[in-house]
């Protein structure tokens, strides 16, 4: 790493990517074993893979952080990072898009067809006579049995408010950082992942409630599938985002960020806003409508 600041930065060989690839492989391999009921190899491999990945994250990002603080990164490198993060978020948008697409398709087209509307008249007549559709539904065979939905104006509303305020807190922290006001930044920054964790906690409670009292499960036909997969993947993203925010908070506390250079902070903030926006979509399309 002998380059001077300002030069184009070509990092020399790094061992982290290959460690990441191996970790990812072992993780996935373990996951596949586990799903196929091969135990204890499955869970063990999964855990080993996860451990390697965590080790890798500390190592890789630690190295990047050190290099960044040494001022090795030019504005151009910074811009590459920014583009990378933006396109990564775009790919995440498309991933959620697949599940939203599944929701819209099932709800807007498939269920009405099964119920005999338009194009589905014959299907309803010959295969599912008597099925009237509607939403929520667990299909003609009422798979998973009678269930109730989560009322939007309870916990989900609170969760919406929590996430919205967490977007505000992270923005305040960002402004404080740009003003160079560390003392104002830190509390707002720490508040953000706390709110995130609160969100996850409430969602976990909501899930438990759904399983124990509402009989709403993954198995509850297409409604259960779309409900849990959409909110579940979102919850996973909130969890990851919270972890990232803690790391950022720690680094901010250690004084890693300057007024001008704090890409890591911004990347995580973007990610957090993205998670927030996805939630608004969920709140609207999964809970309210």
């Amino acid at each position: 790493m002998s380059q001077q600041a300002g030069a184009y930065y070509v990092p020399h060989g790094s061992r982290w990517p290959i460690i990441a690839a191996v970790g990812l492989f072992i993780f996935m391999w373990g996951a596949a074993h586990w799903l196929d009921g091969i135990e204890p190899e499955g869970p063990l491999l999964l855990a080993a893979g996860a451990a390697i990945l965590i080790f890798m994250f500390f190592g890789w990002f630690g190295e990047v952080a050190r290099e960044s603080m040494k001022g090795l990164y030019s504005d151009q490198v910074d811009l590459s990072f920014r583009m990378g993060m933006m396109w990564f978020i775009f790919s995440e948008v498309m991933f959620f898009g697949a599940f939203f697409g599944a929701l819209f398709y099932s709800r807007g087209l498939q269920v009405p067809w099964l119920a005999g509307e338009g194009h589905g008249a014959l299907t309803n007549l010959y295969l599912f006579r008597g099925y009237t559709g509607g939403w929520p539904t667990n299909g003609p065979d009422a798979i998973g049995g009678v269930f109730q939905t989560v009322p939007p104006w309870g916990e989900p509303l609170i969760n919406t408010l929590i996430l919205l305020s967490s977007s505000v807190t992270v923005t305040i922290a960002h402004h404080a950082l740009r003003d160079g006001n560390r003392r104002r930044m830190l509390p707002w920054l720490v508040a953000t992942p706390i709110l995130g964790m609160l969100f996850v906690f409430l969602q976990a409670r909501e899930y438990m409630d759904a399983y124990t009292h509402l009989n709403l499960t993954l198995h509850s036909g297409i409604y259960g599938a779309t409900f849990f997969m959409l909110t579940g993947f979102h919850g996973l993203h909130v969890t990851l985002g919270s972890i990232m925010l803690w790391v950022i908070a720690y680094r901010a506390w250690r004084g890693h960020f300057s007024k001008e250079h704090h890409f890591a902070f911004e990347a995580v903030a973007w990610y957090w806003h993205f998670v927030d926006i996805v939630w608004l979509g969920l709140f609207l399309f999964v809970y309210i409508i």
Binding site: A102, S106, L114, L127, F128, N138, G139, P140, D141, I143, G144, L218, H219, G221, I222, G224, A225, T226, F228, M229
Partner: peptide
């Protein structure tokens, strides 16, 4: 889940 099952 029942993404691809008409009965559900």
């Amino acid at each position: 889940t029942n993404f691809f099952n008409a009965a559900g």
